[in-house]
Protein backbone atom coordinates (compact mmCIF):
# COMPACT_ATOMS: atom_id res chain seq x y z
CA UNK A 1 0.00 0.00 0.00
CA UNK A 2 2.40 2.63 -1.21
CA UNK A 3 1.11 6.01 -2.42
CA UNK A 4 2.51 7.83 -5.43
CA UNK A 5 5.10 10.44 -4.54
CA UNK A 6 3.94 13.84 -3.30
CA UNK A 7 5.25 17.04 -1.76
CA UNK A 8 4.48 17.78 1.85
CA UNK A 9 4.11 21.04 3.79
CA UNK A 10 3.10 21.51 7.40
CA UNK A 11 2.18 25.16 7.94
CA UNK A 12 2.13 26.48 11.51
CA UNK A 13 -0.62 29.04 10.97
CA UNK A 14 -3.92 29.20 9.15
CA UNK A 15 -2.61 32.07 7.01
CA UNK A 16 0.33 30.01 5.83
CA UNK A 17 -2.01 27.13 4.98
CA UNK A 18 -4.32 29.43 3.02
CA UNK A 19 -1.40 30.89 1.11
CA UNK A 20 -0.05 27.43 0.28
CA UNK A 21 -3.46 26.22 -0.83
CA UNK A 22 -3.86 29.19 -3.13
CA UNK A 23 -0.42 28.64 -4.61
CA UNK A 24 -1.02 25.14 -5.99
CA UNK A 25 -3.91 23.70 -7.97
CA UNK A 26 -3.13 20.06 -7.22
CA UNK A 27 -2.85 20.42 -3.46
CA UNK A 28 -4.92 18.54 -0.89
CA UNK A 29 -5.46 19.40 2.74
CA UNK A 30 -4.56 16.74 5.28
CA UNK A 31 -6.36 16.80 8.62
CA UNK A 32 -6.99 13.45 10.38
CA UNK A 33 -6.04 11.60 7.22
CA UNK A 34 -8.54 8.81 7.68
CA UNK A 35 -10.15 9.28 4.29
CA UNK A 36 -7.36 10.80 2.26
CA UNK A 37 -4.45 8.56 3.24
CA UNK A 38 -6.20 5.25 2.43
CA UNK A 39 -7.28 6.71 -0.90
CA UNK A 40 -3.67 7.71 -1.60
CA UNK A 41 -2.34 4.29 -0.57
CA UNK A 42 -4.74 2.65 -2.99
CA UNK A 43 -3.66 5.27 -5.57
CA UNK A 44 -7.24 6.44 -5.93
CA UNK A 45 -5.95 9.89 -5.01
CA UNK A 46 -2.54 11.23 -6.02
CA UNK A 47 -2.25 14.86 -4.90
CA UNK A 48 1.02 16.54 -5.82
CA UNK A 49 1.12 18.47 -2.55
CA UNK A 50 -0.20 17.57 0.88
CA UNK A 51 -0.78 20.50 3.23
CA UNK A 52 -0.85 19.03 6.72
CA UNK A 53 -3.08 21.12 8.98
CA UNK A 54 -2.03 19.17 12.06
CA UNK A 55 0.51 21.73 13.27
CA UNK A 56 -1.94 24.63 13.24
CA UNK A 57 -2.85 25.31 16.83
CA UNK A 58 -6.16 26.54 18.21
CA UNK A 59 -8.52 25.07 15.63
CA UNK A 60 -9.87 22.22 17.72
CA UNK A 61 -12.10 24.17 20.14
CA UNK A 62 -15.72 23.52 21.03
CA UNK A 63 -17.15 26.64 22.66
CA UNK A 64 -20.37 28.35 23.63
CA UNK A 65 -21.15 31.32 21.39
CA UNK A 66 -24.52 32.23 22.84
CA UNK A 67 -27.20 31.08 20.43
CA UNK A 68 -24.86 28.60 18.85
CA UNK A 69 -21.95 26.33 19.67
CA UNK A 70 -18.80 26.89 17.63
CA UNK A 71 -16.62 23.94 16.76
CA UNK A 72 -13.12 24.33 15.36
CA UNK A 73 -12.61 22.37 12.16
CA UNK A 74 -9.79 20.31 13.67
CA UNK A 75 -11.90 19.01 16.57
CA UNK A 76 -11.74 15.23 16.43
CA UNK A 77 -14.80 13.01 16.27
CA UNK A 78 -13.86 11.74 19.72
CA UNK A 79 -13.83 15.30 21.08
CA UNK A 80 -17.20 16.06 19.52
CA UNK A 81 -18.67 12.80 20.82
CA UNK A 82 -17.50 13.51 24.37
CA UNK A 83 -18.16 17.27 24.49
CA UNK A 84 -20.17 18.09 27.60
CA UNK A 85 -21.18 21.37 26.05
CA UNK A 86 -22.65 19.64 22.99
CA UNK A 87 -24.24 16.86 25.01
CA UNK A 88 -25.96 19.46 27.21
CA UNK A 89 -27.03 21.99 24.60
CA UNK A 90 -26.97 20.36 21.15
CA UNK A 91 -26.40 16.62 21.47
CA UNK A 92 -27.23 15.51 17.90
CA UNK A 93 -23.73 16.11 16.55
CA UNK A 94 -22.21 14.19 19.45
CA UNK A 95 -24.71 11.38 18.88
CA UNK A 96 -23.59 11.18 15.27
CA UNK A 97 -19.88 11.47 16.14
CA UNK A 98 -19.88 8.51 18.50
CA UNK A 99 -21.16 6.36 15.62
CA UNK A 100 -18.28 7.20 13.28
CA UNK A 101 -15.85 4.41 12.37
CA UNK A 102 -14.02 2.98 15.34
CA UNK A 103 -12.01 4.39 18.25
CA UNK A 104 -8.88 4.94 16.16
CA UNK A 105 -10.83 6.76 13.47
CA UNK A 106 -12.62 8.90 16.02
CA UNK A 107 -9.35 9.80 17.70
CA UNK A 108 -7.74 10.96 14.46
CA UNK A 109 -10.57 12.03 12.18
CA UNK A 110 -11.75 15.65 12.32
CA UNK A 111 -15.13 17.25 11.75
CA UNK A 112 -13.75 19.64 9.15
CA UNK A 113 -12.04 16.85 7.29
CA UNK A 114 -15.14 14.69 7.25
CA UNK A 115 -17.38 17.52 6.01
CA UNK A 116 -14.92 18.49 3.28
CA UNK A 117 -14.70 14.86 2.16
CA UNK A 118 -18.53 14.68 1.83
CA UNK A 119 -18.66 10.91 1.69
CA UNK A 120 -22.21 9.89 0.71
CA UNK A 121 -22.42 7.57 3.74
CA UNK A 122 -20.67 9.79 6.30
CA UNK A 123 -22.52 10.37 9.56
CA UNK A 124 -22.04 14.10 10.13
CA UNK A 125 -23.92 15.37 7.06
CA UNK A 126 -27.27 14.00 8.29
CA UNK A 127 -26.84 15.79 11.62
CA UNK A 128 -25.45 19.00 10.11
CA UNK A 129 -28.47 19.19 7.79
CA UNK A 130 -31.01 18.43 10.49
CA UNK A 131 -29.48 21.10 12.70
CA UNK A 132 -29.34 23.76 9.99
CA UNK A 133 -25.74 24.28 10.98
CA UNK A 134 -23.42 26.75 9.30
CA UNK A 135 -20.01 25.97 7.93
CA UNK A 136 -17.37 28.68 7.96
CA UNK A 137 -14.85 28.58 5.11
CA UNK A 138 -11.75 30.74 5.10
CA UNK A 139 -9.63 31.83 2.16
CA UNK A 140 -7.33 34.72 1.26
CA UNK A 141 -10.46 36.75 0.57
CA UNK A 142 -11.76 36.21 4.11
CA UNK A 143 -14.47 34.18 5.81
CA UNK A 144 -17.61 32.86 4.15
CA UNK A 145 -20.51 31.29 6.00
CA UNK A 146 -22.13 28.44 4.10
CA UNK A 147 -25.49 27.15 5.36
CA UNK A 148 -25.70 23.34 5.61
CA UNK A 149 -28.44 23.09 3.00
CA UNK A 150 -26.21 24.52 0.32
CA UNK A 151 -22.95 22.94 1.47
CA UNK A 152 -23.27 19.35 0.21
CA UNK A 153 -23.57 19.47 -3.56
CA UNK A 154 -22.95 15.86 -4.57
CA UNK A 155 -20.95 12.73 -3.98
CA UNK A 156 -17.60 13.86 -2.57
CA UNK A 157 -18.37 17.42 -3.65
CA UNK A 158 -19.20 20.50 -1.63
CA UNK A 159 -19.75 24.22 -2.09
CA UNK A 160 -16.16 24.81 -0.95
CA UNK A 161 -14.00 26.70 -3.43
CA UNK A 162 -10.59 25.24 -4.21
CA UNK A 163 -8.85 27.96 -2.17
CA UNK A 164 -11.05 27.62 0.92
CA UNK A 165 -10.41 25.78 4.16
CA UNK A 166 -13.21 24.85 6.57
CA UNK A 167 -12.36 26.59 9.83
CA UNK A 168 -15.47 26.39 11.96
CA UNK A 169 -18.86 24.72 12.27
CA UNK A 170 -21.68 26.54 14.06
CA UNK A 171 -24.53 24.50 15.39
CA UNK A 172 -27.66 25.93 17.00
CA UNK A 173 -28.66 24.84 20.48
CA UNK A 174 -31.58 22.45 20.53
CA UNK A 175 -32.90 22.92 24.04
CA UNK A 176 -36.50 21.75 24.21
CA UNK A 177 -36.11 19.38 21.31
CA UNK A 178 -35.47 15.67 21.24
CA UNK A 179 -32.60 14.55 19.04
CA UNK A 180 -31.63 11.11 17.82
CA UNK A 181 -29.12 9.74 15.35
CA UNK A 182 -30.07 6.26 14.23
CA UNK A 183 -27.63 4.33 12.14
CA UNK A 184 -27.41 1.03 10.27
CA UNK A 185 -23.68 0.29 10.25
CA UNK A 186 -21.94 -1.28 7.28
CA UNK A 187 -20.24 -4.31 8.85
CA UNK A 188 -16.96 -3.77 7.00
CA UNK A 189 -16.47 -0.03 6.59
CA UNK A 190 -18.50 1.15 9.55
CA UNK A 191 -20.07 3.81 7.32
CA UNK A 192 -23.82 4.36 7.42
CA UNK A 193 -25.80 2.12 5.12
CA UNK A 194 -28.50 4.46 6.32
CA UNK A 195 -28.20 7.14 8.97
CA UNK A 196 -31.14 9.23 10.15
CA UNK A 197 -30.68 12.35 12.25
CA UNK A 198 -33.84 13.76 13.76
CA UNK A 199 -34.62 16.90 15.74
CA UNK A 200 -38.16 16.99 17.11
CA UNK A 201 -39.75 19.86 19.01
CA UNK A 202 -43.13 19.26 20.51
CA UNK A 203 -45.23 18.77 23.60
CA UNK A 204 -47.67 16.18 24.87
CA UNK A 205 -47.81 14.07 21.78
CA UNK A 206 -47.96 16.96 19.32
CA UNK A 207 -45.09 17.78 16.99
CA UNK A 208 -44.42 21.51 16.67
CA UNK A 209 -41.40 21.30 14.45
CA UNK A 210 -39.20 18.59 13.06
CA UNK A 211 -36.02 18.31 11.02
CA UNK A 212 -34.70 15.10 9.51
CA UNK A 213 -31.34 14.57 7.80
CA UNK A 214 -30.66 11.30 6.01
CA UNK A 215 -27.31 9.94 4.90
CA UNK A 216 -26.25 6.76 3.09
CA UNK A 217 -29.26 6.49 0.82
CA UNK A 218 -28.52 8.96 -1.96
CA UNK A 219 -25.33 10.28 -3.45
CA UNK A 220 -25.59 13.19 -1.07
CA UNK A 221 -27.22 13.54 2.35
CA UNK A 222 -30.61 15.24 2.26
CA UNK A 223 -33.44 16.67 4.35
CA UNK A 224 -36.54 14.50 4.35
CA UNK A 225 -38.80 17.48 3.67
CA UNK A 226 -41.83 15.41 2.72
CA UNK A 227 -41.79 13.77 6.15
CA UNK A 228 -41.19 17.09 7.89
CA UNK A 229 -44.09 18.77 6.05
CA UNK A 230 -46.40 15.90 6.87
CA UNK A 231 -45.63 16.15 10.58
CA UNK A 232 -45.52 19.83 11.51
CA UNK A 233 -48.39 20.53 13.87
CA UNK A 234 -49.51 16.90 13.76
CA UNK A 235 -49.91 14.37 16.57
CA UNK A 236 -47.28 11.70 17.17
CA UNK A 237 -49.63 9.12 15.69
CA UNK A 238 -48.91 10.66 12.27
CA UNK A 239 -45.27 9.52 12.39
CA UNK A 240 -45.78 6.01 10.99
CA UNK A 241 -47.51 7.23 7.86
CA UNK A 242 -45.26 10.27 7.38
CA UNK A 243 -42.06 8.23 7.67
CA UNK A 244 -43.02 6.31 4.55
CA UNK A 245 -42.00 9.44 2.62
CA UNK A 246 -38.42 9.38 3.93
CA UNK A 247 -36.94 8.58 0.55
CA UNK A 248 -39.47 10.25 -1.75
CA UNK A 249 -37.98 11.65 -4.93
CA UNK A 250 -34.58 10.29 -3.97
CA UNK A 251 -32.40 8.32 -6.32
CA UNK A 252 -31.13 5.61 -3.98
CA UNK A 253 -27.61 4.22 -4.30
CA UNK A 254 -27.02 0.49 -4.27
CA UNK A 255 -23.96 -1.68 -3.89
CA UNK A 256 -22.97 -5.27 -3.20
CA UNK A 257 -24.02 -4.93 0.42
CA UNK A 258 -27.32 -3.08 0.17
CA UNK A 259 -29.42 -2.29 -2.88
CA UNK A 260 -31.09 1.04 -3.49
CA UNK A 261 -34.51 -0.47 -2.73
CA UNK A 262 -33.30 -1.80 0.58
CA UNK A 263 -31.70 1.52 1.56
CA UNK A 264 -34.92 3.30 0.66
CA UNK A 265 -36.84 0.86 2.83
CA UNK A 266 -34.37 1.24 5.70
CA UNK A 267 -34.66 5.02 5.46
CA UNK A 268 -38.40 4.73 6.07
CA UNK A 269 -38.11 2.33 8.99
CA UNK A 270 -35.20 4.17 10.60
CA UNK A 271 -36.91 7.54 10.16
CA UNK A 272 -39.99 6.27 11.92
CA UNK A 273 -37.96 4.79 14.74
CA UNK A 274 -35.76 7.89 15.04
CA UNK A 275 -38.79 10.18 15.25
CA UNK A 276 -40.50 8.04 17.85
CA UNK A 277 -37.32 7.89 19.92
CA UNK A 278 -36.65 11.61 19.52
CA UNK A 279 -40.13 12.48 20.69
CA UNK A 280 -39.84 10.29 23.74
CA UNK A 281 -36.30 11.51 24.56
CA UNK A 282 -37.30 15.18 24.27
CA UNK A 283 -35.58 17.44 26.76
CA UNK A 284 -37.64 19.73 28.97
Amino acid sequence: MIPASFDYESPKTLNEAITLLASREDAKLLAGGHSLLPAMKLRLASPALLIDLGRIGGLDYIRDSGETISIGALATHAAVAASRLLLASSPLLAQAACNIGDIQVRNRGTIGGSLAQAHPSADYPAAILALDANIVATSQSGERVIPAHSFFTGMFTTALRPDEIITEIRVPKTAGSGTVYKKFHHPASGYAVVGVAAVVRGATGKIDDVAIGITGVAEVAYRATAVEDALRGKPASAIAEAAKHAADKVEALGDNYASGDYRRHLAQVYTRRALQEALSSKRK
Partner: peptide
Protein backbone atom coordinates in the same frame (compact mmCIF):
# COMPACT_ATOMS: atom_id res chain seq x y z
CA UNK B 1 -22.78 -17.02 8.55
CA UNK B 2 -23.44 -13.29 8.88
CA UNK B 3 -20.85 -11.14 7.14
CA UNK B 4 -18.14 -12.62 5.01
CA UNK B 5 -18.30 -13.24 1.29
CA UNK B 6 -15.70 -12.87 -1.40
CA UNK B 7 -17.75 -11.47 -4.26
CA UNK B 8 -16.69 -11.39 -7.91
CA UNK B 9 -18.61 -9.41 -10.49
CA UNK B 10 -19.66 -10.81 -13.86
CA UNK B 11 -16.21 -10.01 -15.31
CA UNK B 12 -14.45 -11.93 -12.55
CA UNK B 13 -13.31 -8.79 -10.72
CA UNK B 14 -13.20 -9.20 -6.96
CA UNK B 15 -15.46 -6.44 -5.65
CA UNK B 16 -14.88 -7.13 -1.98
CA UNK B 17 -11.23 -6.32 -2.45
CA UNK B 18 -10.56 -4.26 0.65
CA UNK B 19 -11.51 -4.42 4.30
CA UNK B 20 -13.87 -1.51 3.62
CA UNK B 21 -15.98 -3.99 1.63
CA UNK B 22 -15.00 -7.39 2.98
CA UNK B 23 -16.40 -7.66 6.48
CA UNK B 24 -14.26 -9.43 9.06
CA UNK B 25 -15.82 -9.49 12.51
CA UNK B 26 -15.05 -6.74 14.98
Amino acid sequence: ALYEEMVYNEDGQPITGSLMDYAVPK
